[in-house]
Amino acid sequence: MAELPVDAALTEGRVPDRSPEEIPELHEVDCPPELHEYIEAAMGRYPDRKSASLPALWAVQRRYGWCTPEGIRQAAAVMRVTPGYLESVASFYDLFHTEPVGTHKIAVCTNISCWMRGGDELLKAFCEATGCDPDEARHGTTSPDGDLHVTRFECLGACDLAPMASIDERYFGPLEAADAATAIEQLRSGEDVLPGKALEKRPLAGDTEGGADA
Protein backbone atom coordinates (compact mmCIF):
# COMPACT_ATOMS: atom_id res chain seq x y z
CA MET A 1 0.00 0.00 0.00
CA ALA A 2 1.95 2.91 -1.33
CA GLU A 3 -0.16 5.50 0.49
CA LEU A 4 0.84 4.25 3.92
CA PRO A 5 2.77 6.92 5.82
CA VAL A 6 6.27 5.61 6.43
CA ASP A 7 9.39 7.12 7.85
CA ALA A 8 12.04 6.10 5.37
CA ALA A 9 14.85 6.51 7.87
CA LEU A 10 13.30 3.97 10.23
CA THR A 11 11.91 1.48 7.78
CA GLU A 12 14.59 1.32 5.12
CA GLY A 13 14.31 -2.09 3.50
CA ARG A 14 11.25 -2.86 5.53
CA VAL A 15 8.67 -0.57 3.92
CA PRO A 16 5.54 -2.71 4.10
CA ASP A 17 3.72 -3.34 0.86
CA ARG A 18 0.76 -4.44 2.95
CA SER A 19 -0.67 -2.81 6.02
CA PRO A 20 1.11 -4.05 9.17
CA GLU A 21 -2.20 -3.48 10.94
CA GLU A 22 -4.07 -6.14 8.98
CA ILE A 23 -3.89 -9.78 9.98
CA PRO A 24 -2.79 -11.59 6.81
CA GLU A 25 -4.78 -14.58 5.61
CA LEU A 26 -2.94 -17.90 5.53
CA HIS A 27 -3.40 -18.31 1.76
CA GLU A 28 -1.67 -14.96 1.23
CA VAL A 29 1.57 -15.82 3.00
CA ASP A 30 2.71 -19.25 1.80
CA CYS A 31 3.86 -20.41 5.23
CA PRO A 32 5.99 -23.59 5.08
CA PRO A 33 4.07 -26.49 6.68
CA GLU A 34 6.78 -27.24 9.30
CA LEU A 35 6.79 -23.64 10.48
CA HIS A 36 2.99 -23.61 10.55
CA GLU A 37 2.89 -26.79 12.61
CA TYR A 38 5.58 -25.59 15.01
CA ILE A 39 3.75 -22.34 15.75
CA GLU A 40 0.39 -24.10 16.14
CA ALA A 41 1.98 -26.49 18.65
CA ALA A 42 3.57 -23.59 20.52
CA MET A 43 0.23 -21.79 20.76
CA GLY A 44 -1.29 -24.95 22.21
CA ARG A 45 1.06 -24.81 25.19
CA TYR A 46 -0.27 -21.50 26.50
CA PRO A 47 -3.68 -20.29 27.68
CA ASP A 48 -3.29 -17.26 25.38
CA ARG A 49 -2.02 -17.73 21.84
CA LYS A 50 -0.06 -14.47 21.99
CA SER A 51 2.35 -16.14 24.42
CA ALA A 52 3.69 -18.00 21.40
CA SER A 53 5.21 -14.74 20.06
CA LEU A 54 8.72 -15.54 21.23
CA PRO A 55 8.66 -19.23 20.20
CA ALA A 56 7.21 -18.18 16.82
CA LEU A 57 9.87 -15.53 16.25
CA TRP A 58 12.58 -17.99 17.24
CA ALA A 59 11.19 -20.43 14.69
CA VAL A 60 11.12 -17.74 12.00
CA GLN A 61 14.70 -16.74 12.78
CA ARG A 62 15.92 -20.36 12.78
CA ARG A 63 14.29 -20.97 9.40
CA TYR A 64 15.31 -17.80 7.57
CA GLY A 65 18.44 -16.77 9.48
CA TRP A 66 16.76 -13.58 10.66
CA CYS A 67 13.25 -12.27 11.33
CA THR A 68 12.39 -11.49 7.71
CA PRO A 69 9.29 -9.41 6.99
CA GLU A 70 7.87 -12.37 5.04
CA GLY A 71 8.58 -14.75 7.92
CA ILE A 72 6.92 -12.39 10.36
CA ARG A 73 3.85 -12.18 8.11
CA GLN A 74 3.71 -15.97 7.98
CA ALA A 75 3.88 -16.25 11.78
CA ALA A 76 1.31 -13.47 12.12
CA ALA A 77 -1.10 -15.29 9.80
CA VAL A 78 -0.80 -18.49 11.83
CA MET A 79 -1.09 -16.70 15.16
CA ARG A 80 -3.92 -14.40 14.03
CA VAL A 81 -2.05 -11.30 15.16
CA THR A 82 -0.89 -8.34 13.11
CA PRO A 83 2.60 -8.33 11.59
CA GLY A 84 3.05 -4.95 13.29
CA TYR A 85 2.54 -6.60 16.64
CA LEU A 86 5.21 -9.24 16.01
CA GLU A 87 7.57 -6.59 14.61
CA SER A 88 7.20 -4.61 17.82
CA VAL A 89 8.05 -7.68 19.88
CA ALA A 90 10.98 -8.71 17.67
CA SER A 91 12.55 -5.26 17.85
CA PHE A 92 12.55 -5.31 21.66
CA TYR A 93 14.82 -8.31 22.11
CA ASP A 94 18.57 -8.37 21.49
CA LEU A 95 18.64 -11.90 20.11
CA PHE A 96 16.14 -11.25 17.33
CA HIS A 97 17.65 -9.85 14.16
CA THR A 98 15.37 -7.62 12.13
CA GLU A 99 17.88 -7.32 9.33
CA PRO A 100 20.03 -9.87 7.50
CA VAL A 101 22.98 -11.30 9.46
CA GLY A 102 25.74 -13.82 8.81
CA THR A 103 25.09 -17.55 9.09
CA HIS A 104 27.38 -18.00 12.08
CA LYS A 105 26.74 -15.79 15.08
CA ILE A 106 29.49 -14.73 17.45
CA ALA A 107 28.70 -12.71 20.57
CA VAL A 108 31.65 -11.55 22.65
CA CYS A 109 30.93 -10.55 26.23
CA THR A 110 32.52 -7.25 27.24
CA ASN A 111 30.64 -6.79 30.49
CA ILE A 112 32.42 -6.21 33.83
CA SER A 113 34.06 -9.58 34.56
CA CYS A 114 34.98 -10.28 30.94
CA TRP A 115 36.21 -6.70 30.45
CA MET A 116 38.51 -7.16 33.46
CA ARG A 117 40.01 -10.26 31.86
CA GLY A 118 40.39 -8.95 28.30
CA GLY A 119 36.93 -9.03 26.70
CA ASP A 120 37.59 -5.91 24.61
CA GLU A 121 40.78 -7.42 23.22
CA LEU A 122 38.91 -10.63 22.43
CA LEU A 123 36.25 -8.71 20.51
CA LYS A 124 39.02 -6.99 18.55
CA ALA A 125 40.58 -10.37 17.79
CA PHE A 126 37.30 -11.73 16.45
CA CYS A 127 36.94 -8.63 14.29
CA GLU A 128 40.41 -9.13 12.86
CA ALA A 129 39.77 -12.81 12.22
CA THR A 130 36.50 -12.13 10.41
CA GLY A 131 37.28 -8.84 8.71
CA CYS A 132 34.54 -7.08 10.67
CA ASP A 133 34.79 -3.41 11.55
CA PRO A 134 35.41 -3.11 15.32
CA ASP A 135 33.32 0.05 15.61
CA GLU A 136 30.39 -1.60 13.84
CA ALA A 137 30.79 -4.70 16.00
CA ARG A 138 29.84 -2.66 19.04
CA HIS A 139 26.28 -2.94 17.76
CA GLY A 140 26.71 -6.06 15.65
CA THR A 141 27.99 -6.41 12.10
CA THR A 142 28.46 -9.05 9.41
CA SER A 143 31.75 -9.97 7.77
CA PRO A 144 32.34 -8.83 4.17
CA ASP A 145 31.71 -12.37 2.87
CA GLY A 146 28.30 -12.34 4.59
CA ASP A 147 29.09 -15.47 6.54
CA LEU A 148 29.92 -14.33 10.07
CA HIS A 149 28.07 -12.01 12.41
CA VAL A 150 30.14 -10.50 15.22
CA THR A 151 28.74 -8.46 18.05
CA ARG A 152 29.72 -7.11 21.43
CA PHE A 153 27.27 -8.47 23.97
CA GLU A 154 26.19 -7.70 27.52
CA CYS A 155 26.79 -10.27 30.27
CA LEU A 156 26.09 -13.76 28.96
CA GLY A 157 26.09 -15.36 32.40
CA ALA A 158 29.42 -17.09 32.13
CA CYS A 159 31.78 -14.86 34.12
CA ASP A 160 33.62 -17.99 35.28
CA LEU A 161 34.75 -18.41 31.65
CA ALA A 162 35.89 -14.80 31.27
CA PRO A 163 36.75 -13.67 28.72
CA MET A 164 34.24 -15.67 26.75
CA ALA A 165 32.13 -15.74 23.62
CA SER A 166 28.97 -17.40 22.46
CA ILE A 167 29.49 -19.00 19.07
CA ASP A 168 26.36 -20.30 17.35
CA GLU A 169 24.60 -20.35 20.71
CA ARG A 170 27.27 -22.37 22.52
CA TYR A 171 29.59 -20.91 25.17
CA PHE A 172 33.41 -21.00 25.00
CA GLY A 173 36.04 -19.70 27.42
CA PRO A 174 38.30 -18.63 28.88
CA LEU A 175 39.57 -17.50 25.47
CA GLU A 176 42.82 -15.94 24.41
CA ALA A 177 43.07 -13.58 21.47
CA ALA A 178 44.62 -16.35 19.35
CA ASP A 179 41.56 -18.55 19.90
CA ALA A 180 39.50 -16.16 17.79
CA ALA A 181 41.35 -16.97 14.56
CA THR A 182 41.26 -20.69 15.35
CA ALA A 183 37.51 -20.62 16.00
CA ILE A 184 36.82 -18.74 12.76
CA GLU A 185 38.93 -21.17 10.76
CA GLN A 186 37.06 -24.08 12.31
CA LEU A 187 33.69 -22.44 11.59
CA ARG A 188 34.65 -21.87 7.96
CA SER A 189 35.85 -25.44 7.47
CA GLY A 190 32.95 -27.00 9.35
CA GLU A 191 35.07 -28.50 12.12
CA ASP A 192 34.13 -28.64 15.81
CA VAL A 193 34.78 -25.24 17.33
CA LEU A 194 37.33 -25.00 20.16
CA PRO A 195 36.40 -28.39 21.63
CA GLY A 196 38.67 -27.96 24.64
CA LYS A 197 37.07 -24.67 25.65
CA ALA A 198 33.38 -25.56 25.51
CA LEU A 199 31.30 -24.81 28.59
CA GLU A 200 29.76 -28.28 28.67
CA LYS A 201 33.19 -29.81 29.15
CA ARG A 202 34.14 -27.55 32.02
CA PRO A 203 34.37 -29.25 35.40
CA LEU A 204 32.69 -27.81 38.47
CA ALA A 205 34.88 -25.32 40.32
CA GLY A 206 36.16 -26.20 43.75
CA ASP A 207 37.35 -29.32 45.46
CA THR A 208 36.12 -32.03 43.20
CA GLU A 209 38.15 -34.34 41.06
CA GLY A 210 39.37 -32.35 38.09
CA GLY A 211 38.13 -29.13 39.72
CA ALA A 212 38.92 -26.00 37.80
CA ASP A 213 42.20 -24.39 38.72
CA ALA A 214 43.48 -21.38 36.88
Binding site: S113, M116, C159, D160, A162, L204, A205, G206, A212, A214
Partner: peptide
Protein backbone atom coordinates in the same frame (compact mmCIF):
# COMPACT_ATOMS: atom_id res chain seq x y z
CA UNK B 1 29.35 -16.99 41.77
CA UNK B 2 32.81 -15.49 42.20
CA UNK B 3 34.42 -13.83 39.18
CA UNK B 4 36.61 -10.97 38.04
CA UNK B 5 40.19 -10.65 39.21
CA UNK B 6 40.53 -13.96 41.04
CA UNK B 7 42.55 -17.09 40.29
CA UNK B 8 39.72 -19.62 40.35
CA UNK B 9 36.47 -18.02 39.22
CA UNK B 10 33.48 -20.30 39.63
CA UNK B 11 30.44 -21.28 41.66
CA UNK B 12 31.03 -22.17 45.30
Amino acid sequence: SVSGCVRRPGNY
